[in-house]
């Protein structure tokens, strides 16, 4: 029994059901119009289409500017006792009130922005660096290298992240670099897993085989051929990592495991916790700052996902 699959019409849809073909036909017709654009422009367009992400990006830029400029403009020292303790927001010109030691909450939040963003960014960078290196090697070399590295990853996933980094900070001293390392050391497994699965997928693709066949060295294959194509999900993950690193830092400083000479959002909440009955605003506002920043980061992450994930783009 023969079938029409072998004929030379080869519309390539022989395997599809009619329904799928019908739907594809509808989509293809529309895609023709957008085909000619540059991929980066396309990605930017997709990002801007996600209105929440665009608004979030705007606010994120605002937060970063606040972190840089805020403390220069608003010169009140967050450690100074500027007024009577527990002055409610608005009283005597202190927009967000004062805490249990009469320190200006607004000043604290402005200075804390710097710390949160700094630690968040550098911990995320470190996470991505470790995660990508390990994931890339595991996915590229396969065999025992992969086995060993994935076992290592599994090992780090078993460690209770917060407890472990609490211990690191307590043992090696509560300085910002140590805090950053403590966060990075426990957060990388997720990035490693994503990188590895992307590498596993891409290394089997034809252009990689072609490049290998034309004599490319391993290093070139890894960094010039595979890595650029594996980047989209890693970038999305990195954006989310900044958010979770900020949450992580906030948690540590809430528990008091932070540099006592530096104000941070979590630390304001932690130190004012005993007085929430009298002055709930002392924990509400710094918490809002954390919440809003991380919210913006996750929305931007969503937008990046829309922009960079070609599978979604077709929907």
């Amino acid at each position: 029994m023969n079938d029409l699959k072998n004929d030379s019409r080869s519309d390539g849809l022989a395997q599809n059901t009619d329904t799928q073909a019908d739907l594809n036909a509808g989509i293809n017709a529309e895609q023709l119009t957008t085909k000619a654009r540059h991929p980066a422009a396309d990605a930017l367009g997709m990002f801007l289409k996600n209105r929440a992400a665009t608004v979030a990006l705007f606010f994120l830029v605002l937060i970063i500017i606040t972190g840089i400029v805020g403390p220069m403009v608003y010169k009140t020292d967050p450690f100074d006792m500027v007024w009577a303790p527990f002055s409610p927001p608005g009283a005597e010109g202190f927009l967000l009130g004062t805490d249990y030691l009469g320190r200006d909450i607004l000043a604290g939040i402005l200075y804390g922005t710097r710390v949160s963003l700094l630690v968040g960014l550098s911990a995320a960078l470190m996470t991505v660096f470790i995660g990508v290196s390990i994931g890339a090697m595991a996915g590229f070399f396969r065999g025992w290298v992969e086995e060993a590295l994935m076992r290592l990853t599994e090992f780090f996933q078993v460690l209770p992240t917060l407890l472990f980094s609490m211990v690191i900070v307590a043992l090696f001293g509560p300085t910002l670099p140590i805090i950053t390392i403590a966060i990075g050391a426990v957060s990388w497994p997720a990035v490693a897993r994503i990188t590895r699965s992307e590498f596993l997928r891409i290394r089997e693709l034809e252009y990689v085989t072609a490049s290998r066949a034309s004599g490319s060295k391993n290093a070139k294959l890894m960094f010039k051929v595979i890595l650029p194509n594996a980047l989209p999900p890693i970038i999305v993950q990195a954006a989310l990592m900044v958010g979770s690193a900020i949450l992580f830092e906030a948690g540590l400083s809430f528990l008091g495991l932070t540099d006592p000479n530096i104000v941070s959002w979590g630390q304001i909440i932690g130190s004012n916790r005993p007085y929430i009955l009298d002055a709930s605003y002392t924990v509400t506002f710094p918490g809002l700052a954390i919440f809003f920043t991380v919210l913006c980061l996750s929305l931007v992450g969503d937008g990046l996902n829309d922009a960079l994930n070609p599978k979604l783009r077709q929907r």
Binding site: G251, G270, R273, G287, F291, F292, V294
Partner: peptide, 15 residues
């Protein structure tokens, strides 16, 4: 999903 992920858990607890 967005809020639950973005709010620090200790802050949610205090609120």
């Amino acid at each position: 999903a967005l809020f639950g992920y973005s709010a620090p858990v200790f802050w949610t607890g205090i609120l």
